[in-house]
Design a protein around this nucleic acid. Structure first.
Length: 176
DNA sequence: GAGCCGATATTCT
DNA sequence: GAATATCGGCTCC
C-alpha cells in the first residue's frame, strides 16, 4: 500500500501503472495510469496556491480523495489529493491506457480511438464529472477507485503541460 | 502530420 | 475583461 500523504512529487511517479476504476452510472470502466503531473501548495501553477475556493476545496481535504475541476469551461480533470490534510497538494491524472469497459468508453467518447490520452478525455471515458468531486478513491464502494500498482514503472520526468507558471519544473511523469 | 480557433465555468485583475 | 492543469474540427500542407 503506497502512502498518499507524502510529497506529491515523490508520490506521482509511483502512481504510474496504477489502475483507475470507475463504476459511475453502473458501467465498469478501468484504465492503467500512464501519465501524471504533481501540483504542490507552494507551487505557483497549482490551483490551490492562492487558497481554497469552492471549486478546489477537495484539494484541501484528506489524502486519497478525488478532486475534479472544470478546465477551460468544458472539460473535467481528475486529481488524487495527497496529504497532509489541508496542504492543497494533488496529482493530476493526465492519461491512461484503457483496460476494461472499452465499449463504454467508446460510447462516452463518441469515437473508437484516443479514449483516454488526455486529462479531459480520461474523465470523459471514465464518466467522471464534478458529481464525483471529493469521493474517497481508496474506499471500497466508491464510484471511482484507485488500485495502486505493485511495482514501480520506468518513467521519464518532463515539464508540465498547459501552464504558464513554474514551467521549468519537471513534475510531469510519463510511463515508458 | 502541424497549426489555428471556438466552446465555456470559474477565478482573478 | 482576461486567463486557464483542454479538446476536436477545421484548414493546409
Amino acid at each position: 500500500m503506497i502512502a498518499l500523504s507524502g510529497d506529491a512529487v515523490a508520490i506521482a511517479p509511483r502512481l504510474l501503472g496504477a489502475r483507475l476504476i470507475s463504476s459511475v452510472g453502473g458501467l465498469l470502466t478501468a484504465v492503467e495510469i500512464t501519465e501524471v503531473e504533481a501540483y504542490r501548495d507552494d507551487d505557483q501553477a497549482s490551483h490551490s496556491h492562492r487558497g481554497p475556493t469552492p471549486a478546489n476545496r477537495a484539494m484541501f481535504g484528506p489524502p486519497g480523495r478525488l478532486h475534479v475541476y472544470r478546465s477551460y469551461g468544458i472539460h473535467w480533470c481528475a486529481n488524487v489529493v495527497t496529504g497532509p490534510e489541508g496542504s492543497g497538494a494533488a496529482i493530476l491524472f493526465r492519461a491512461g491506457r484503457p483496460l476494461d469497459g472499452i465499449d463504454t468508453m467508446r460510447m462516452r467518447r463518441g469515437r473508437g480511438e484516443h479514449l483516454a490520452d488526455g486529462p479531459g478525455k480520461l474523465c470523459q471515458a471514465l464518466g467522471i464529472t464534478g458529481i464525483e468531486d471529493g469521493v474517497d478513491l481508496l474506499a471500497v464502494g466508491s464510484p471511482v477507485r484507485l488500485q495502486l500498482g505493485e511495482v514501480e514503472r520506468d518513467y521519464v520526468a518532463t515539464p508540465r503541460i498547459g501552464i504558464s507558471k513554474a514551467v521549468d519544473l519537471p513534475w510531469r511523469f510519463v510511463a515508458e
